[in-house]
């Protein structure tokens, strides 16, 4: 009787310790992977930061201004270029009607050709 109980418990102990070690190594591996990835992220972040620094330096308005003055004929926005929406004249009513008719005709022919 006692022998069976002993064997039973020994088996449980062996199985338990085996699963424990498997689990432990698994966790350690995963943890290592996490650390590795975290470190990679931090490294990437640092590189991104340096690249960002470069980008900001290159897009500095002062630098852009110098470059445009050297190479382009563009100038600062003049206020006379700003217009209200109401300043833009409406299309004459006849034109709008013609346009609509033309479009509807195009639509019809398209439908007809598709049917065929």
């Amino acid at each position: 009787m006692i022998r069976f109980v002993y064997i039973f418990f020994i088996c449980i102990a062996i199985l338990g310790s085996l699963s424990l070690y498997v689990l432990k190594y698994d966790t350690t591996n995963t943890e290592n992977q996490i650390t590795e990835l975290k470190n990679k992220i931090i490294d990437e972040k640092k590189i991104i930061n340096v690249l960002n620094a470069d980008f900001y330096k290159l897009t500095d308005p002062e630098r852009i201004q110098k470059l445009t003055q050297l190479h382009l004929t563009l100038g600062p926005i003049n206020i006379s270029q700003q217009k209200e929406l109401k300043d833009i004249p409406m299309k004459p009513a006849n034109d709008i009607m013609d346009d609509l008719i033309k479009r509807s005709l195009v639509g019809l022919t398209e439908i007809e050709t598709r049917r065929e």
Partner: peptide, 27 residues
């Protein structure tokens, strides 16, 4: 022993500490 094993299995994350080193994020 069995109880301890059970504990290890179910709360493995807390009881096993990784010795690997995470860099400090100084930024």
């Amino acid at each position: 022993l069995v109880a301890k094993l059970f504990d290890y299995v179910s709360f493995a994350d807390n009881s096993i500490k990784s010795s690997s080193y995470v860099k400090a994020d100084n930024l």
